[in-house]
């Protein structure tokens, strides 16, 4: 009882302290001007939003809740809903800075996420703002190369080989991520950077099941700054696996048509056997009628 009381007092004290120290988490968090004006080097697209969502659900939901649901954890200062007005009023750079550096109860994510991953989270938060229009950096003088990709599979080392070109020239230092497309989502095989020959290697788990011929649907993305490309291809690189129907063969629980033969024979032979005997007796009753003349 005593212990409990002490515990309560400590919590109360902490809460008061936090309340006094930080009345509003957003309003007085000063972001350096340079950071505030920083713009994303990536165009926020659906893929970024989706990846940002994965990162958000894993690292942010516990305090901020699901955006636009106002279900953030009640703490002091209130973490707030990222879909709310005060959040969305800030610049992309400000969001990026706050997530990266953290403050007080907001953790620092600089070590947890690379810059592109942080931008994914920003993209995800922005996806809740219908009026948002991404501010793009000044592109003057910058030519954005158009990537083309060639995929192949090296079965000696179980690696997916991705060659990235732009106008027939191999492109070095391009981030490549390869996915296997599942029924409900894409599974990350791996990420790699192209070497000076414009080639990136991604490990393929040889135990991954494909279709009967070992085919899987592969999707590869190549990004470098604003340049990006995406290809989707069916490739033979997984373990050939036969697909079986869950109900093939004769099962006790399957339809009547698929009932085990011994069961059908036993059932019908006994039922019809007995009824045959009964009908024999019923028809035999005529003999009793005939037999009346005998005497």
């Amino acid at each position: 009882m005593k212990n409990n009381k002490g515990y309560h007092i400590i919590i109360l004290f902490c809460l008061c302290f936090l309340a006094v120290a930080n009345v509003n988490a957003q309003s007085d968090w000063q972001v350096p001007v340079e950071a505030n004006e920083k713009l994303s080097p990536f165009l926020f697209d659906d893929d970024m939003v989706l990846e940002g969502r994965v990162a958000y659900e894993n690292s942010c939901t516990s305090c901020h809740g699901t955006p636009s649901q106002d279900d953030f954890t009640p703490m002091s200062p209130p973490p707030g809903d990222p879909a709310s007005e005060p959040f969305q009023a800030q610049s992309d750079g400000s969001m990026f800075y706050k997530i990266k550096t953290g403050r007080g109860t907001m953790p620092k994510f600089a070590d947890a996420f690379a810059d592109d991953e942080l931008w994914n989270i920003v993209a995800y938060i922005r996806s809740f703002n219908e009026n948002y229009k991404q501010e793009l950096p000044n592109m003057e003088g910058i030519v954005i190369p158009e990537y083309a990709m060639k995929l192949s599979f090296d079965e000696n080392v179980d690696k997916l080989v991705v060659k990235v070109f732009a106008e027939e020239l191999p492109q070095p230092e391009v981030s490549v991520s390869a996915y296997v497309m599942g029924t409900f989502g894409k599974h990350l095989l791996g990420k790699a950077q192209t070497n000076e020959l414009g080639i990136a290697y991604v490990d393929v788990d040889p135990t991954l099941p494909g279709d009967e011929e070992g085919r899987v649907n592969v999707m590869v993305k190549a990004t470098k700054g604003f340049a990006r490309a995406k290809v989707e291809e069916h490739m033979v690189m997984a373990k050939a696996t036969e697909r079986h129907s869950a109900i093939e063969g004769r099962h006790i629980w399957s339809t009547d048509r698929m009932a085990p033969i011994w069961l059908k024979i036993t059932f019908f032979v006994s039922v019809f056997g007995v009824w045959f005997a009964l009908l024999f007796i019923v028809f035999g009753l005529r003999n009793i009628k005939k037999a009346r003349k005998e005497a």
Partner: peptide, 12 residues
């Protein structure tokens, strides 16, 4: 069934 107690009827 026209029963009239014949032996054959009883047998059947």
């Amino acid at each position: 069934l026209g029963w009239n107690n014949t032996a054959k009827q009883f047998r059947l």
